[in-house]
Amino acid sequence: MLESFYYRVERGIIVATKEGSDNLARSVFALQKRMKELDCVYRIFNELHKSSTADEAVKSVMEQLPQGFRFPEQMAIRIEIDGNEHRSVDQWSDERVISTEIVVNGREIGTISVSLTEGLDIKGSPFLKEEKKLLSGVAAALSSTLERVIIQRELKESLARLTFAVEASGEGIWDWDIKTGKVVFSKRWKEMFGFSDEEISDHVSEWEKRIYPEDVEEVKSVLNRCF
């Protein structure tokens, strides 16, 4: 088998060396590792973007995160949020583990940890510094997703309470988006004026065309002064 040699000049003499080949191999390995991490990050971010619940977000991280490490088959993931623990596998090694916190709205609500399970004889640190950065980045992305999920849930709950209060009061309400011209008329508002839900569209023109013709200019003038 022919060996590949690289050449350099030392004191005017051309010297054959295998050092260049070793450097190239290390560069290729580093590039492959980087591509693997980027692919893992892309997949996780894509799944987190689609997540509408905390369980969906946690599940996506548990499934995708091991693929960003050197030994995905030996990786165990543990995510703890507000006392609830999620594990990818039962095996766990407390000696070979890295962990980082999950922070939402400035409060630490849990941790995400990665453990290298038994069975591998590794000299030195079991985790590369790039893998530690990967875990920190994923933890930050998960934190942002959980914060979004919490906000969406609170908004949904607030809207449900408001809807209940409005319906119980028997009042008709409307909401006007001035930029788009879209107006949301409540069902009760339409009923108060003798219309069914389907007869009135969600646009300000529904209100404008019901102004008395002789009052149109005055109404527009008053509105313009308000803006």
Rank of each mutant, 00 (worst) to 15 (best):
A140T: 09
L120R: 13
E167A: 11
I81M: 04
N105V: 11
K129R: 15
T111P: 00
L159K: 14
L120S: 06
A165N: 02
P126K: 01
N84R: 15
W176M: 02
F164C: 09
A139M: 01
V184Y: 14
I102D: 05
T180I: 07
Q91R: 14
G172Q: 10
A141P: 08
S169D: 10
D82H: 12
P126V: 07
R148H: 02
E147D: 07
I109F: 07
E95P: 02
Q152E: 15
P126H: 10
R161I: 12
V114P: 09
S143M: 00
R161Y: 08
L135G: 09
V89F: 08
A141S: 09
G106H: 10
R96E: 14
D94M: 08
D121V: 12
L162F: 14
Q152D: 12
V166R: 04
Q91I: 01
R161F: 13
R161L: 14
S113C: 01
L128F: 07
L135I: 06
V97I: 14
D121K: 13
I112K: 04
F164S: 12
D175G: 06
F164I: 12
I151Q: 15
I98L: 01
T100W: 04
K182N: 14
A139Q: 08
G119S: 05
D82Q: 13
S125T: 13
S169W: 03
S125N: 15
I122Y: 01
G83A: 06
T180N: 11
I98Y: 11
K133S: 13
S93R: 05
S115L: 03
T145A: 10
G172H: 10
D177E: 10
L134N: 02
G83P: 05
V114M: 02
E171H: 10
W92Q: 05
A165K: 05
T117C: 11
K133N: 14
R153I: 00
S169T: 01
R153W: 02
E171K: 00
K129A: 15
S99K: 07
N84W: 09
E118C: 07
V104E: 03
S186T: 03
A160F: 04
T180Y: 08
S115G: 00
S144T: 05
N105G: 02
I112T: 01
S186F: 01
G83I: 06
I150K: 12
V184L: 15
E80D: 11
V103M: 08
K129L: 15
Q91T: 11
D175H: 11
K123E: 10
L155G: 05
K187P: 06
V103L: 02
E171D: 15
K123H: 12
V114C: 01
G110L: 10
I102G: 03
L120F: 01
A140D: 14
L146T: 02
K182P: 04
D121I: 13
E154Q: 13
